[in-house]
Design a protein around this nucleic acid. Structure first.
Length: 810
RNA sequence: GCCUGGGUGGCGGAACUGGCAGACGCACCGGACUUAAAAUCCGGAGUCCCUUACCGGACGUGCGGGUUCGAUUCCCGCCCCAGGCACCA
């Protein structure tokens, strides 16, 4: 009597051990098959462990990797830990444990939970961004940037989170609040390390064109980079002593230069002190002080316009007119030149400002709207514009740029919204920046052969709150001789942001144990990444930073490609209906997490894997249903019984119907996999089992083999176990993905829908391939259809073979 | 305001290129098996109307139009929801 009960617990443990023992998932550098690199966004190992939302994120790329393996690729599917950074440190402080110890424990727990999912990770390539052997190379990359002038220091007001007690990148400030903790972000003047990502703006923008990424993500990156074409134009400002100063502005609308009726400087603009007249001085200084204290986000988004007149004037180079110079916080020092020409007739913000302060509004582009007030931002015929009057504005833009270039008062210019990247953090748990400050030599790089600069062992790692890193207090670590001159120097005590380690980790998986190079010759064959799977929350920051690092590493000769991720897939989040009925994200803080450990015990890993895919379209958010896993579990039990009941009693030749079901299954599963419709792949499997169950005949051996191979990427233990029980040697993952024959994908009979005047009136079951005449004949003879056709004149017949017959009658 | 997505039964969702709307699954209802329950198996089900019942009919993919023999799918005009950006000159 063969064992026919589906004992998922034993089976899953058995095969997990077996696969590990035979190193099934080891990606070998010398494997002759074509390579395929499928990458998961590696997790930050938090203390709360995995929930079923993580399962969805990792099962999808795992099923895809197994599919590529069966298609004959040499698959690299690695995993590691993004373990530096603020959350890890805050978590450790809260628990009163050293971040290193805490992080190690979290990683252990995460790895244990991930193994229960049975992903085909090659654990021999596991990496950890906090491992000195890893961050040695993060520091090395920083030194390359320093040498190229891409890493530089700047005293600047930075976004300062009073709760995390550190500076933040613009990207980490969301709606004026800290992306991590939600505290309102202020500003602080600190000497910061910056990365000159703006130097790569154009390449980061153009590189997007060739990528097989979701349009949404590409659009978000394009908007973030924010390229604007226009011109820089130098007006002449007169200071309080009557001296001339060039006052440069950037505009995207040089065609409206004749409409400039005043100018506005950002409150931080360096020329303000020279331009402010005595009688205006008190108001201007008060205004600057107010603007200083407000963080940039308070200034953006406000619609009410504020400002002050400096008392000085500038000359518009187009027409020689004298126009007043104002200061206002709606002009940002960080964009363009920090000064604008204001054209209230053709710009919404300038119009609002002009209305508030009673400044002149002048129309220089013809429009219906502007008559009697208002502004018009569209194109049109230029009016009151000197020699350019009568030109269409698009043409006028070019003509005026040509004219100012000839006169030497301006030129065409391209402006980006992207800012340089604030790269230092005043915290302990990050990569030390490998620089020594020397009184004589300045900032001196630590020699490469002295890397890594290790984090010192410390008792106190809490932030100081003074703007200084906790590392500054570790005297014997800080005080070192200058690598250049040998004089007394001090180490840089700021650390790198969490993004540093994650900006290049995908490279290190390909040569994780190479001590000589970041990327060894053995690793190059794997790159670039063929498929990158992760959440859309990384659409801008992580993906932009990783692309930037790749371009830099390309330029210093480490890699020979520019774009690291050829294809990107963003999977949706798992949500849950809350008590109020509202759908909310599944998270520890919301207290709505579903723990996979319980479900593995009650239904098994395979049933959970299947449900994680079946729950909804992969790219969309999906609502978790606690009972949903019962469906995929029942399916597995039915499939189990179908195979075990027939095991050893195979039918010699499959029936035509069985054959059709088999070929249709291969076709459906393959096509839906290729387009990432994983939820419908599972449906197809279920439909197949329902159909063969209804057939009531023993299957042939090949049909069962094909079914098991198709199922194996999704329910690997289940498929492997039945593969063995039906007399094959493991592993099923050494098999090839099955093919289908289009000829066998249609059944002998088809159901044809019949419409009369576009309304569904009945169905006919006929032989596949019936011609129009015989279908019409059958319709005339059909009991239910006859009465709709009798005594009617058939005006038109539309017949789509094997699908539909539509009769137009009168 | 701008840029993306999305809106289909009680619920999650399916529908290739304009061709039977609601596959598959959850929950639900009925039946079989059982002392009983669980498990399993068989069957039912968009809404409404007519009918004792059978048969039948109307409506139906956010709303309003249009194209077409035929529209969840294409076109025009709106509404709502989610995400991103937002004084960027």
């Amino acid at each position: 009597m063969p064992e026919i009960e589906y004992r998922f617990g034993e089976i899953e443990q058995k095969w997990r051990d077996y696969w590990a023992a035979v190193e099934l998932y080891k990606a070998r550098d010398d494997d002759p098959r074509p390579k395929y690199y499928c990458l998961d966004m590696f997790p930050y190992p938090s203390g709360s462990g995995l929930h079923v939302g993580h399962w969805r994120s990792y099962v999808l790329p795992d099923a895809w990797s197994r599919y590529m393996l069966l298609k004959g690729y040499n698959v690299l599917h690695p995993m590691g830990w993004d373990a530096f950074g603020l959350p890890a440190e805050n978590d450790a402080i809260q628990k009163g444990i050293h971040p290193e110890v805490n992080t190690r424990g979290n990683i252990e727990n995460f790895r244990r939970q991930l193994v229960e999912m049975s992903p085909m990770y090659d654990w021999s390539r596991e990496i950890d961004t906090t491992d000195p052997e890893y961050y040695k190379w993060t520091q090395w990359i920083f030194l390359q940037m320093f040498r190229k002038g891409l890493a530089y220091q700047k005293l600047m007001p930075i976004n300062w989170c009073p709760s995390c007690k550190t500076g933040l990148a613009n990207e980490e400030v969301v709606g004026g609040k800290c992306d991590r903790c939600g505290a309102v972000v202020g500003t602080k003047d600190l000497n910061q390390w910056m990365l000159k990502i703006t130097a790569y703006a154009e390449r980061l923008l153009h590189g997007l064109d060739e990528l097989d990424w979701p349009e949404k993500v590409k659009t978000m990156q394009r908007n973030w980079i924010g390229r604007s074409e226009g011109a820089r134009v130098r007006f002449t400002a007169f200071d309080t002593d009557g001296r001339e100063h060039p006052l440069e502005i950037f505009t995207t609308r040089p065609d409206t230069l004749f409409g400039a009726t005043y100018m506005v400087l950002a409150p931080e603009h360096p020329l303000i002190s020279k331009l402010t007249t005595n009688d205006r001085s008190a108001q201007v200084h008060a205004y600057i002080e107010k603007a200083r204290n407000a963080a940039e986000h308070d200034r953006t988004g406000a619609t009410e316009k504020t400002g002050q007149f400096t008392g000085s004037y500038a000359v518009n180079p187009m027409n020689g007119e004298k126009i007043p110079i104002w200061i206002a916080d709606y002009v940002l020092m960080g964009y363009g030149t920090g000064a604008i020409m204001a054209v209230p007739g053709h710009d919404e913000r300038d119009y609002a400002f002009a209305k508030t302060f009673g400044l002149e509004v002048r129309e220089v582009i013809a429009s219906r709207k502007a008559k009697g007030g208002g502004f018009y931002t569209g194109d049109g015929e230029m009016i009151a514009s000197g020699e350019f009057t009568g030109m269409p504005s698009a043409e006028g833009r070019k003509a005026i740029v040509g004219w100012i270039a000839e006169k030497g008062i301006g030129e065409s210019a391209i402006q980006y919204r992207l800012r340089d990247w604030v790269f230092s953090r005043q915290r302990y748990w990050g990569e030390p920046i490998p620089i020594v400050h020397c009184g004589a030599c300045g900032a001196v790089p630590v020699p490469e052969n002295e890397l890594p600069v290790r984090l010192p062992e410390v008792e106190r790692f809490q932030p100081t709150g003074t703007g200084e890193s906790p590392l500054a207090a570790i005297e014997d670590w800080v005080n070192v001789p200058c690598p250049a001159c040998g004089a007394a120097g001090k180490r840089e005590t700021n650390t790198m942001p969490q993004w540093a380690g994650s900006s290049w980790y995908f490279l290190r998986y390909t040569s994780p144990h190479n001590n000589e190079a970041l990327l060894g010759p053995e690793g190059k064959k794997w790159l670039p990444v063929d498929m990158y799977v992760g959440g859309v929350e990384h659409a801008i920051l992580h993906l932009l930073y990783a692309r930037f690092f790749s371009l830099v590493l390309h330029d210093v000769g480490v890699i020979d490609f520019r774009e690291p991720f050829k294809r990107l897939f963003n999977q949706g989040m798992i949500t849950r209906k809350g008590k109020s009925g509202r759908v909310e994200k599944m998270s520890k803080s919301k207290g709505n997490v579903v723990n996979p450990d319980d479900l593995i015990r009650s239904h098994g890993c395979d049933a959970l894997r299947l449900y994680a895919l079946f729950v909804g379209p992969p790219e969309m958010d999906a609502v978790w249903n606690d009972e949903g896993i019962d469906g995929t579990f029942r399916f597995l039990k039915r499939a189990w019984k179908w195979v075990c009941d027939s095991n050893g009693q195979w039918r010699e030749e499959p029936s035509r119907q069985m054959l059709t079901h088999r070929h249709l299954l291969v076709k459906k599963v393959t096509e839906r996999l290729e387009t990432f419709r994983l939820n419908t792949v599972v449906s197809a499997m279920m439909e197949f089992i329902n159909a063969v169950h209804a057939l009531d005949e023993k299957p042939d051996r090949e049909t069962v083999d094909v079914f098991l191979v198709l199922l194996s990427p999704f329910a690997p233990h289940f498929a492997e176990e039945l593969w063995e029980r039906t007399g094959h040697a493991p592993s099923i993952f050494k098999q090839s993905w099955p093919q289908w024959d289009e000829e066998f994908t249609t059944f002998d009979t088809v159901t044809i829908a019949v419409q009369i005047n576009g309304r569904m009136r009945g169905r006919l079951t006929l032989d596949h391939g019936a011609v129009e005449e015989s279908v019409l004949e059958a319709a005339r003879n059909d009991h239910d259809l006859r009465r709709h056709i009798e005594n009617q004149e058939i005006l038109k017949v539309i017949y789509v073979p094997d699908k539909i017959l539509n009769l137009v009658v009168a």
